[in-house]
Design a protein around this nucleic acid. Sequence first.
DNA 1: GAAAATTGGATGCGTTTGTAACTTTTTTGA
DNA 2: TCAAAAAAGTTACAAACGCATCCAATTTTC
Lengths: 144, 144
Amino acid sequence: MTEPEPFDLRDFTPYLLNLAAEQSSLTFQSYYKDRYGMLRTEWRVVFHLGRYGPMTAKEICSRARLHKTKVSRAVSALEKNRFLVKSALEQDRRLELLKLTKTGQSAFADLYDAARRFDAELVGQFTENEREVLRRCLTRIAGL
Amino acid sequence: MTEPEPFDLRDFTPYLLNLAAEQSSLTFQSYYKDRYGMLRTEWRVVFHLGRYGPMTAKEICSRARLHKTKVSRAVSALEKNRFLVKSALEQDRRLELLKLTKTGQSAFADLYDAARRFDAELVGQFTENEREVLRRCLTRIAGL
DNA sequence: GAAAATTGGATGCGTTTGTAACTTTTTTGA
DNA sequence: TCAAAAAAGTTACAAACGCATCCAATTTTC
């Protein structure tokens, strides 16, 4: 009969994950928020359009794992702020192809570099092996 | 001159952390939400009071890294639902000592066990070494 | 080929959250 | 010693979210 170990919130992986996620997101948030007035969902939408090219809102939903109402509102805000434009697709008029404008593209280029550098610095404190383990564990837990 | 590697959202650690945090929290959420009608902040408050004994809202704020308005609202809800009671401290009448009721204590005992089991299952798919690395990396990133 | 079901997307509503202001009590310091 | 600053906690307000609903276009089905 082994006594169960004492268990603190710090031992609870979902809690630790939340703290780490909040902390890292908070730090990077200043990039897209302060410079471009974007929210997190907007930055993710810009990322997808910039990284993978024009696509519909539906595609962003599935690729970015975002709910369609969040994407819809993010797209509206990005359109209002001239980061993207919608264009109709004649083969199915329910769909609208989303494309970054010049402004959107340069914001993407800037944020893309910033994200890469930020990530490099964030995981740079760990060894190559630690990075691999971290990545594998997170991917698994996230269900990717 | 090395070409930079292509960089996907899945390579961006804050994004991965968010997905993993959301996924794991979502699964555990059903325990405290469905059984006790609690929100996440309320569960955390209950955890602290159950695990470390009666304390003030201020102490919960600093120990749980929660903003005082969130704690204030969580405490109100928990009090309304009879999970805790407030009692005045005569040495400083700004403070109120928060204690779990019997109901609160049994909810804590139940959730505490559930959390322990949930965590064991979540990280049980990893090796001992992976668990250590994951814990170390998350703790570091979270700034603990 | 028209009614029914489905799909992409937008919107309304209630809930949750963050920020700032506010109340009350305690501490500080001129 | 008493006015100002600070601290614990609450509240007001606006922004953001999730959910359900709705609309318009398309596909399915009988």
